Amino acid sequence: MKTRREFLKTSGGMVLGGLFLPYLTEAAKVKNVGINLYSVREPMLADAKGTLEKLAKIGYKEIESAKSVKGNYYGLQPKEIKQITKDLGLTLRSGHVPVNATWQKSVDEAAEAGQDYLIAAGLPSRGQTIDNYKKVADIFNKSAEDCQKANLIFGYHNGGSDFAQENGQTLYDVLLDNTNPDLVKMELDLGWAIVGGGDPVQYFEKYPGRFPLWHIKDIKKDKAESTEFGKGRIDIAGLLQNKKKSDMKYFFVEQEEWDHSPLESLQYNYGYLMKLSM
């Protein structure tokens, strides 16, 4: 088993195998790496400012918050996290919140925090049926109008179950087909889309302009759990080559489970990305 020192050393000095070499000469280096704060939810709850400082030191630039037991910004006020991130050279770009009774409060806080996007972290009503996804589409259309009034862009972050089918129709497609393409954008979680049976590239081609945000993660080969980049079944390097096809604006690293500590895993993932291109 690697020591912690060996693990961190590897994250900063990874050598890519021949599989990825073609990409190094075909595209620009990865930059402006984002992080979804759910990846460091426990450290954020314990010390939000200190954790943001550590993420900035690693090299992350774009921040996506996520609702917690302490609110949408891990106990920080909207103006407070706006100033902290600015001082650290970070940009608070987006946030994950539920579409529920506190929705308008979340919209108001996002506007005050100065972020660009507000993302529904899950479906506001349960049911893996076409009828429910049409109902959700109506809710999302209204939510997007609320965001537009506040100069925010609304989006939805998928899970793997969104790619289930009913009567031959993929539920995620029902959602895309029944929402306003100008107002309702998608934050495609590439890992869970693939695990659920979706092909991200096909979606980029079928629904142009709908995917300005990505979540990138690797998934273990033997179970549906996230892992450090390069250790699982997701072709991170290959997917990054589709940035232009997707018209992707920002992407966020997300890792829900760890073999090491969250910050060690995120250090490793950042080092991995620095060896790739897009």
Rank of each mutant, 00 (worst) to 15 (best):
Trp258Gln: 09
Gly197Phe: 12
Ser65Asp: 03
Ser39Gln: 01
Glu187Leu: 13
Gln115Tyr: 15
Gly114Pro: 02
Trp258Pro: 05
Tyr74Trp: 09
Thr102Phe: 12
Phe211Ser: 08
Lys54Asp: 08
Ser226Gly: 04
Lys149Gln: 07
Lys206Thr: 11
Leu240Cys: 03
Pro124Glu: 03
Gly18Tyr: 09
Asn36Cys: 13
Tyr60Ile: 01
Leu266Cys: 12
Ser106Asn: 10
Tyr172Ile: 03
Asn100Val: 15
Asn242Ala: 06
Leu19Cys: 09
Gln128Ile: 00
Asn100Thr: 13
Gly155Ala: 05
Met186Glu: 13
Asn141Asp: 02
Asn36Arg: 12
Asp218Trp: 03
Ser246Tyr: 02
Val33Ser: 01
Leu88Val: 03
Lys29Ala: 13
Leu152Met: 04
Gly89Asn: 08
Ser125Ala: 13
Ala66Asp: 05
Lys105Glu: 12
Glu256Trp: 12
Ala46Gly: 07
Asp259Gln: 11
Pro22Tyr: 01
Gln104Met: 14
Gly18Gln: 08
Glu205Lys: 05
Asn167Cys: 04
Asn100Ala: 15
Ile219Ser: 07
Leu273Ile: 09
Leu263Ile: 15
Asp108Tyr: 11
His96Glu: 00
Arg93Ile: 09
Ile234Gly: 01
Ile58Phe: 08
Gly198Tyr: 04
Val69Asn: 08
Ala237Tyr: 00
Lys231Met: 09
Glu64Ile: 04
Pro124Asn: 04
Val30Phe: 07
Ala121Pro: 05
Ala193Trp: 08
Gly232Val: 06
Lys31Glu: 10
Pro200His: 07
Leu21Tyr: 08
Thr25Arg: 13
Leu190Met: 07
Lys245Val: 12
Gln104Arg: 13
Ile216Glu: 03
Ile130Asp: 09
Ala144Asp: 00
Val195His: 11
Ile84Arg: 09
Leu188Lys: 02
Ala101Ser: 14
Asp218Phe: 04
Lys70Met: 12
Ile216Tyr: 06
Gln104His: 13
Trp103Val: 15
Leu273Trp: 05
Leu19Asp: 09
Glu225Phe: 09
Leu176Ala: 05
Gln115Asn: 15
Glu64Gly: 02
Phe20Val: 12
Asn100Asp: 15
Phe154His: 03
Leu88Asn: 01
Gly159Asn: 11
Leu37Gln: 02
Gly89His: 10
Pro22Leu: 00
Leu171Thr: 00
Pro200Gln: 07
Lys57His: 11
Glu145Leu: 08
Val30His: 04
Val136Met: 13
Thr10Gly: 10
Gly122Ala: 14
Tyr60His: 03
Glu228Phe: 09
Gly127Leu: 00
